[in-house]
Amino acid sequence: MLLARDGMTENAVLFWKLAKATLLRAVLIAVVVVGSVSAQTGGIERSPVYLAVSGNVALDQHIHDLLQQSFHKHWDLISVSGEQAALIEDAPVITIGPGAFSRVRQANRKVPVLAMLTTRDFLEGFASRSPGQISGVYFDVPLLRQALIGKTILPHASRIALIATTASAELYDSLIDELPQYGLEAQLFIVKEDKQLIPTLVRALSYGDFLLAAPDNAIYNPRTIKHVLLTAYRRNRIVIGPSQAYVKAGSIAAGYAPFPVMTEMAAEYLQEFFETGTFPEPDYPPSFNIAINQQVARSLNIPLAPKEQIVKSVELQIENKGVQIDE
């Protein structure tokens, strides 16, 4: 087979490419047509909503099922790949994750996109350039909430250590401005090169009562997280954030947006899209949950209130602008 392919003439290669493109086009048309037809079956005409998946089968299926529930049969949900999005006109596409979002955007600049499982940092620029057409439900939890989770767990904390690269420093800009009204202050320590991560972390841990980690792959990634967590533990400092996965790895807690809340919010955005033709601005889900690593808390002798109580305390602090509620 390899020999045959190597032996192909240029014409033969062109032919195969053409045939492949034609075949793909036929399949896409079939999917969209079938999708449209299926949307009109059952006697009720329902608008199609396309779902561009991430490729993680279990995750995609879970989101798909939740969206179905949230749609209450108002719309039909049709899964498509990124390339298939090229043929979609007018109907909105929900994307799962930044990869699917990028693929859809590359294939079709005109299609309205509602992004899920992307962070604010990722999506904000696209949404501001195409207001109403590009929107989403942010996957991350606002850093202020993460900071207040830390403050609730460690009530005597007053200083937060932050680490970023020069490129990611802006992630923390608004947080640093917001913190003083909650009785907190933060100092950002910049890592200019990989080698400086641990020395910078050591300096940051000397400053802060805890380390707040934003979703910043340059600093917090599977390669670095072990060093970061262990260095923090040894200094008796806790790490908050950036996500559930890192809590599983050993970070003490992180807020996260529950999928049902995100899909409900997506349904509300779609409702508005079908009514007005535009999406509302992207935003964070209205409520969040918290993941906690009890084992780490016990090891560090940190008493933890129940999750619901921590969440409630954070919400009340935000409502009352800094007045911490003692549960």
């Binding site: 996965a245 790895a249 050993g250 949950n289």
Partner: peptide, 17 residues
């Protein structure tokens, strides 16, 4: 966990213990 984790969880071990 209330929800399945994204792909990053598979790459991160638990370093607590």
């Amino acid at each position: 966990l209330a929800q399945p984790l994204s792909e990053e969880s598979g790459q991160i071990g638990f370093y607590g213990f």
